[in-house]
Simulated assay, not measured.
Amino acid sequence: MAFIRVMSFGLRLGKRNLMLVFCVVFLVSLTLLLLKTGNRDQARLQGLAKCRELSQLLETKNLSGIVQFHKTANEEEQVLVIKKWKLQMKDKMILEHLLLTKECPWEANATAVAQYRAELGKCCNASFWLAVTQENAPLGSNISPDGNKGQKLPVNAELTSLLPERSPFPESQYRRCAVVGNGGILKNSRCGVEIDQADLVVRFNLPPMNFSEDVGTKTSLVTMNPSIIQNKYKSLQAQRKPFADALQPYRDALFLIPALSFVGHGVLGYRAVYTMEDFGLMQQAFFLNPRYLSTLRDYWKKQGLKPQRLSSGFMFVSMALEFCEHITLYGFWPFPHDLADQPISHHYYDNRLPKAGFHSMPSEFSHYLSMYAKGVLRLRLGKCQ
């Protein structure tokens, strides 16, 4: 009996010691976890502060500050790679800024997003002015083409018959938006699934959709430049079925045609709409309003962006800044190499180069970088999966 009592006491003492050891281990682990979390949070906050600092340097074009920023960044190897590329100095600087920016721990900045939304809403008001309607261009009025200053396009009965009564774009906000450029950097990205999860998906110039793994299948809005109608579909003066077939992947989308920006483009826009009417898609076609594009150009000119004409991508990123809470850009990349120094095609589907001097893609990309650094939008430049 005495032996049993001793053993029982030993077991109770062992359990107490075991419990004590467990408590000590738990407290030490919790302390280390809190320290690690605190250090991680501190590093994140420091990184965000540096990201904001870089954003200010980019916006104010503080070159001496940017040089100093470079000295503290561990990107020397990739900067040397970039210096081998045959680019203008300003484009090399944009890429070097990207190398710094991509190290920033990105975090959405609702205040900065709200500021863009308020400024663009005040100057441009996409929900009312983006598309030409009977409300903002009544019968008998004139439209001023943004590409031909001093010209007037009368709003006649034929044009009025093609216009919706009111804007098809709601004033309510979309939560997640994907603006999908056609850059070659999108090829092999495997971003299709992620793109299709967005509430609003914007595409440009009827791009081929047989790359679904990389570009997705969903489209909410797609642009259709008159140059595409003219060059790819022979101005719709011959067979129209190839054009109608090209629209099938976008059957549920809205089609926006900038046919009134230049005198002479209207006839191409009319033919496109009439063809869509014949194939049952007319109710989804709208003309992009030159007034919206004109006020948008003036806004960005004040921000230091002065190309001959804004690209379609930049126009609709601006639209998304009014409509969307969270914006992600895919396929926006104006350079002939990726950051691994591999050559890439201009588009994900071909290597046809744009008309020289018409747009300023690197300068626009620099503005995207600035918005990324401020937490306004995200840039997808690598693989999604």
Rank of each mutant, 00 (worst) to 15 (best):
F3W: 09
L13M: 07
N39G: 06
Q46I: 03
R52H: 12
S55H: 08
E59M: 05
T60N: 15
S64V: 08
G65Q: 02
Q68V: 07
F69H: 08
K71A: 13
T72P: 01
N74H: 11
Q88K: 12
D91T: 03
L95I: 03
L95D: 10
T101L: 10
V113E: 14
G121T: 06
N125D: 15
L130D: 09
T133L: 05
Q134F: 01
E135W: 02
N136R: 06
A137W: 00
N142E: 15
I143Y: 03
P145Q: 05
K152V: 14
N156M: 00
L162W: 13
E165L: 09
Q173V: 00
Y174D: 04
A178Y: 14
I185A: 06
E194F: 02
I195L: 08
V201M: 11
F204D: 14
N205C: 07
M209V: 05
E213L: 04
V215R: 03
S220V: 06
M224N: 01
P226F: 10
K232M: 07
Y233L: 11
Q239M: 05
K241N: 09
G264W: 00
G266A: 02
L268Y: 13
E277K: 12
G313K: 02
M315S: 11
L321N: 07
L321M: 13
E322R: 01
I327C: 00
S345M: 04
Y349H: 11
F358Y: 12
H367K: 15
L369F: 07
K374I: 00
L379N: 02
